[in-house]
Amino acid sequence: MPESNQFSPILTPIADFFANILRVPGGFFRDVLVSIDITTAKGVFIAYFTLLIIWVLTLKKEEVFVTDERTGKTVSLRPYAIAALLSQVIIYLFY
């Protein structure tokens, strides 16, 4: 919980006016977030990484293949991107 704010005779009533309006949707939003249990929250993180893996898998060839202009060798960045994202899934599953 934050510390109480300092009172200002001019600014505090203005801030209070807007704060009272915003607290209604803000309170609702907060209640929703607090009601989400930690396993579901973790699921949100993992789902995010998983969705990105799926997105990388669906990228067009010309978007993921890169050619070294000096050697002419073509390499796909897809496995490296997936490896980085997969590591995140594993880390967030364990911790």
Binding site: M1, P2, E3, S4, N5, Q6, F7, S8, L11, T12, I14, A15, D16, F18, A19, L22, R23, G26, R30
Partner: peptide
């Protein structure tokens, strides 16, 4: 800026974290 202002000057902070 408005949210920061309200959070700083309202009688009770707008957000419940520090």
């Amino acid at each position: 800026s408005g949210m920061l202002f309200i959070n700083s000057y309202a009688s009770e902070p707008l957000f419940l974290i520090q």
